[in-house]
Design a protein around this nucleic acid. Structure first.
Lengths: 337, 337
DNA sequence: TTGTAAGCGTTATCAC
DNA sequence: GTGATAACGCTTACAA
């Protein structure tokens, strides 16, 4: 039962129909009372006309759009689905709608998402960039609306931030492999010029050093993706035939590695034990199931959402807060001796 | 270099700074010319103030927000990542930003997404509902902005629509299993009260009938999800110990079934051959890799986006268009004899 | 309780 | 070319 006459119903249409002023319509529609009679007439008219408030006009006036956004790198990476689920729950709870941007690891797209804060479509943004450039920091510092960053930020950046020490997590992975007797432990990394790529590489070295296995670095780098992981695994196997342990910088890479190992005729975990990172749903789906270092993605999403919601309300002027989450290794078949 | 004084810069701030009128500012900023001198002054002021147009005000006036949305059921289902990728590409090409809603199979959320069209945040919507209720159709018919539905619609609904005959696809799956000599062919379905659940069930029956295998229906239903698939597989195995073929209504279910079969000590494909549906990235990741009936999800996303973009521009008043995509079976290890 | 009117930041239509 | 000014749909003093 949409309005027949030109365009959707506005408060003015309703006002005419109900024989009251637009102010009364606005008040009734916002639950600010009025004479029972008035209320009834307005509500009737609104329903008949199928009225929906024009959110543009509303937020132009009041400054609220009721929307927050999450910008992730790749919608295809399951680590983000855990985050999104929790962010969405918290956002909904607080009365915000969640919009998702998939930036595709495209720096320009990320910057665009940041700048778009200024256009008032969203009141705040959670962003999880894998590279943090000078441009990012500039844009971040001039962002017009609150931003929460998931991921490690350089010292001194005054921004709400949820982090996890994936360097420690990587070292845990190596320690676990050492613990089951592996000595020739390789590492399949993502791009070295990313924040997680750096951290996980250092963690891998830490792990080797702790075990007294330093010296030779059995590392291949690629993208944080399955196919890239498979290729990297092939390269590493060719170079290091006696590999007996393999740490992968995320589960996607690990899945690719499992495929490559199978194709190369290596048994997992008997010949090569494998550890992934992120502990995504994928880890329970592969065969053998994948040991993986969880980085609390659901929890990080939740914390980030809470920080943002808080800053959008009560905590408008509080100091930036940095919270962190602890890595946790989940052992599964791929490292079972 | 954000404006120091209250709030972000507006055209008025710029006007004062440049010593011109707001009309001139607007013209310059929209590339409508002006005296070189004026242009220079305005641009300088805009840059210095870090001006970003207020999209709310702009679309309140002009009615364009430059955004379209895609509402999917579950961000965790990889069938949607293929869709999203293509939709995003087409949208970007046409100058739209893509917003994602994950409705969580929640009917209310879906309806909310539809209604939210009226609030002018998005100019159009692509929606892929798995249930189509009376309420959906009502809401769809009164939608204030263009909607494209991915999925089968009842006859007579006047809406742009991209479909795929998954009934035929399901029959193809059964035929394939029959073709490799399987006779006791089970079916793990999603909820029967969904559109895909219905279609795939009928296709399964078609396939059995064609092969002269009618009579007994070896069917278990659950959700379109991994864990649910694993449980359904267990139930079916308990009931039908001599099962030798298994068709799963989507890849998520199939992944769960593979796990259950492994735990039950059945070899795939030797003891039980398995076929999934949707041909998602998961199918290449499992072991054995999964034969799956592709439903052209990337292509469907692309077509839907093209329909929407067209209707938002040239095709404003054209007749609703129904386009369809053909299922295609991709054979992999899980049915290799 | 209700209505009038100002204002949110734009764009577009006028005169000048 | 440029500058007032109206309009988009809404919320909210303020006045009646």
């Amino acid at each position: 039962m949409a309005s027949a006459d030109g365009g959707p119903a506005t408060i003015e249409t309703i006002a005419r129909r109900a024989g009251v002023s637009i102010a009364s319509v606005s008040r009734v529609l916002n639950g600010l009372g009025g004479r029972p009679d008035t209320v009834r007439k307005v509500q009737a008219a609104a329903t008949e006309l199928g009225y929906v408030p024009n959110a543009m006009a509303r937020s132009l006036r009041g400054g609220r759009s009721g929307q927050i956004a999450f910008a992730m790198e790749d919608i295809g990476n399951p680590v983000y689905v855990a985050m999104v689920r929790r962010i969405q729950a918290v956002a909904k709870e607080a009365g915000y709608r969640l919009l998702l941007h998939s930036t595709g690891a495209d720096r320009e797209e990320e910057l665009r998402a940041l700048r778009s804060l200024a256009d008032r479509h969203t009141e705040g943004l959670i962003i999880s960039p894998i590279r943090i450039t000078r441009d990012h920091l500039d844009e971040l510092s001039r962002a017009v609306a609150p931003v929460v960053v998931i991921g490690s930020l350089p010292e001194g950046v005054r921004l709400d931030n949820v982090r996890v020490d994936s360097r420690v997590g990587a070292a845990m992975a190596v320690a676990h492999l050492v613990g089951i007797g592996r000595r020739r432990i390789g590492f399949l990394n993502g791009p070295l010029d990313t924040v997680p790529g750096q951290a996980r590489y250092k963690g891998y070295l830490d792990g080797l050093a702790t075990a007294g296995l330093g010296g030779e670095e059995l590392v291949e780098s690629g993208q944080f993706q399955t196919d890239s992981g498979a290729e990297a695994a092939k390269r590493l196997l060719a170079r290091v035939p006696d590999l007996d342990g393999l740490f992968c910088a995320n589960d996607l890479i690990a899945v690719g590695a499992l495929r490559a190992l199978r194709e190369a005729g290596r048994r997992v975990p008997d010949d090569v034990a494998v550890v992934g990172m992120d502990d995504t749903e994928l880890a329970r789906v592969t065969w053998p199931t994948l040991t993986s270092v969880g980085l609390g993605s659901a929890r990080r999403g939740e914390l980030a959402a809470e920080l943002l919601v808080d800053r959008l309300g009560e905590g408008r002027d509080r100091e930036p807060r940095w919270v962190s989450v602890t890595p946790e290794l989940v052992a599964r078949e791929s490292t079972r001796s």
